[in-house]
């Protein structure tokens, strides 16, 4: 359903800060895949997501989703295919708007925005039910400003917003990295539930190798702008953290020893 063909991206080309972020990426996702992405800092994981969603234009290559070539589409026009959750809990929601207003904005992703009321009555009860499932007590706070909520609550709402339309592809960019361990675990549980229930094709970047192994049916490892390891099915299930560590060490010739990946 998603095909990435030979995508490359270099930042600050021709300057002293030149940085090859993606070096000819080829990746095909099948319907229903839940792929976890790991890799050291600067491996190109976030850049890959930003290329898919069109935050920056690609230098070369093509991105095709369900047969539609979206490589040249502006970010807002391809948003209808994707649900996104960002690393920073502040990024996914509009802080000065109410919870229900944020959800209504997401419910209209990819649709014409008209002069009809921004939220229909029937939507409100649907949102209340969705929020109740989170078990965070947010169902009684539909008209609270999102800015009053904690980071974990905001990530949970962003997850709902990202998945409520059953997107073609859910993109999670280290969405639990900024949360404390307990909250991160809770948000991850919610993620798993929503993805499994909606059978949503998902690409999840994580720094936690245990999560990367435990979740999903496929794991890819990136290094220096390339995919260096792609494993699925049974062999993925049998992976151990030490296996991944060895692979990392091999890929980076030992440089990896100081990387924060070790903490995972």
């Amino acid at each position: 359903m998603l095909e990435i063909k030979g995508v490359c991206k270099t930042f600050n080309q021709g300057t002293i800060n030149e940085k090859v972020a993606l070096n000819g990426i080829d990746l095909t996702l099948n319907d229903g895949d839940f792929v976890t992405v790991i890799g050291g800092n600067g491996a190109g994981k976030s850049t890959l997501l930003n290329m898919i969603t069109g935050v920056y234009p690609v230098d070369c290559g093509d991105i095709i989703i369900d047969g539609v070539n979206i490589t040249r589409l502006p970010e807002h026009k391809r948003a209808k295919y994707f649900g996104r959750v960002f690393q920073d809990p502040m990024t996914g929601t509009a802080a000065d708007m109410q919870i229900e207003e944020n959800m209504a904005l997401a419910a209209r992703r990819g649709k014409m925005r008209t002069l009809k009321f921004g939220i229909k009555k029937s939507e409100r009860s649907a949102y209340r039910n969705l929020l109740a499932r989170l078990g965070l007590g947010l169902e009684d706070r539909l008209t609270s400003k999102v800015g009053l909520l904690s980071g974990g609550q905001r990530q949970a709402i962003t997850l709902l917003m990202a998945t409520m339309q059953n997107p073609k592809l859910l993109l999670l960019d280290e969405h639990t990295a900024a949360l404390d361990p307990q909250t991160a675990a809770k948000v991850l549980n919610i993620t798993e539930e929503l993805v499994t229930e909606g059978k949503i094709t998902t690409l999840m970047i994580t720094h936690n190798m245990k999560d990367a192994i435990r979740l999903g049916n496929r794991l890819i490892m990136m290094d220096k702008g390339r995919i260096i390891y792609d494993i699925a099915g049974e062999s993925k299930k049998n992976l151990k953290v030490s296996d991944l560590m060895d692979l990392f060490a091999k890929a980076s010739n030992g440089e990896f020893a100081n990387d924060r990946m070790l903490l995972g």
Partner: peptide, 22 residues
């Protein structure tokens, strides 16, 4: 309205607005 909401979201968080197709 839907349109008005999208304008407020743009001023409040442009990255979020674009991610939601605005």
């Amino acid at each position: 309205t839907e349109m008005g909401h999208s304008i407020r979201a743009t001023g409040n968080n442009a990255a979020m607005a674009r991610a939601n197709g605005i």
